[in-house]
Structure formats: structure tokens, C-alpha cells
Design a protein around this nucleic acid. Structure first.
Length: 200
DNA sequence: AAGGCGATTGCCT
DNA sequence: GGCAATCGCCTTT
């Protein structure tokens, strides 16, 4: 599968946040391949008090100000990473947080990274969902850290391709999770009924 | 140089 | 449902 073109990403961030649902994100790292279908996203805009870019470029958020189609990964709460897709033209400072994916390939690798009790190789329904049903869980399952921030989604070990076509009416919009500023904006989008969505 | 805090998660009650 | 864990970044002295 070919990576989505640059033109996919350099459009309206709210549009890209919705259209990323159903797409496939793939990390190919040496012998490892892990992939999943994106089922939950959040948009962060340039004039958005909840966005890391709101106060302008800094060392931490610099990838957000690059051209669309790159990755922005940040570290938070002293222990978690979260991964974003940069959107819009260079200098814009907008991105889409990937909040959840449905695992499709490399589940064994995801289990190794996510679960400390690695001797327990069982994967019941609960553990299966817990692999990637949250932004930091997804980042951990895929092994994404700040070292991957700035990677080009058109030409790197991480790409996004066409995935599943979504049925009409299957996208739900809601308020974003875990923020205090601009909390009323309904800029979170998810696939209705998907088991990997972090919250209902 | 110091302090507050966060786009979260998992464990405990 | 409540809360601790844990630390880099940014703002303020």
C-alpha cells in the first residue's frame, strides 16, 4: 500500500481528523510490522487554547509547525507519549491526536510493549482492547517516542495508507478528552460502536 | 534557579 | 469514581 499523499494532510485539520478514521497506520521497523485502523482522533488548531501550538513554536512543539504529513510526538505526565499527525501548511501549527486504533498486525509486538507480565501470553477480549484504546496506549503499543517526532509519514518507518471504508453516518463528534481550555469544542471524532474507542 | 502542571493510565475503594 | 505516579517543558523570579 502507498502512503497517503501530502495533499491529504495539508487541508483543514477538522476535515483531516475525520478522514483519518478508517485509515491504516503502519510501523515497519526491521523485522517488525505493526499496524492498526485509526478509530478515534482529536483536532488541535492554531488558534486553539488547548493546543500545544497556541503560544507559538517552542523546542517541544516544533514538529507541529512543520508541513502536514509529519509526526509530532510529545511526552507527558512523566511517563506517557502521545502521537499526532501534523496537518495544514508549514508554519500553521495544527495537528490531529491519534487517540485509538484497532490492532490489525503485529499484535505479539504490541503485547510485549504494553504488558509487563510478558510471561502471560493469553489475549482475552479485555487485554486485546487494552492494547490500543487510548493515545498513550497506542503510542506504547507501536513503540512511538519523541525520537519519532518529525518523521515524514510519506517516507519513513511510519506511514498511513487507505484502510477501511466507513459506512455513512458512522462518525461521531464529541468534546475532547482531558483538557480544561476550549473544553466545549466538539473536535473529537470516533467510529461509532468500535470497541477500541477510549470513551463513550 | 525554582515551581507548577499536563491532549494519561492503572490501581484502589 | 478518586487519585498517585513521574518528569520535561515552560513560565516566572
Amino acid at each position: 500500500m502507498r502512503p497517503l499523499p501530502r495533499s491529504f494532510y495539508t487541508r483543514s485539520t477538522l476535515l483531516v481528523a475525520k478522514e483519518l478514521l478508517g485509515k491504516r497506520i503502519i510501523r515497519t521497523d526491521g523485522k517488525q510490522i505493526v499496524s492498526g485502523i485509526i478509530v478515534e482522533t482529536e483536532a488541535y488548531l492554531h488558534n486553539d487554547p488547548a493546543s500545544h501550538s497556541f503560544n507559538g513554536p517552542t523546542q517541544r512543539n516544533s514538529a507541529m509547525f512543520g508541513p502536514g504529513g509529519h509526526l509530532y510526538v510529545y511526552f507527558t505526565y512523566g511517563m506517557h507519549y502521545c502521537a499526532n499527525v501534523v496537518t495544514g501548511p508549514k508554519g500553521m501549527g495544527e495537528a490531529v491526536l491519534i487517540r485509538a486504533v484497532e490492532p490489525t498486525e503485529g499484535i505479539e509486538w504490541m503485547m510485549q510493549r504494553r504488558f509487563t507480565d510478558r510471561t502471560d501470553s493469553t489475549l482475552d477480549q479485555k487485554r486485546h482492547i487494552a492494547l490500543t484504546n487510548g493515545p498513550a496506549k497506542f503510542a506504547q503499543a507501536f513503540g512511538l517516542t519523541t525520537e519519532h517526532s518529525g518523521l515524514d509519514l510519506l517516507n519513513s518507518e511510519i506511514i498511513i495508507t487507505n484502510g477501511n471504508a466507513l459506512a455513512r453516518g458512522s462518525i461521531v463528534a464529541s468534546t475532547r478528552i482531558g483538557i480544561t481550555k476550549a473544553a466545549e469544542k466538539r473536535w473529537r471524532f470516533f467510529v461509532k460502536g468500535n470497541a477500541w474507542v477510549s470513551r463513550r
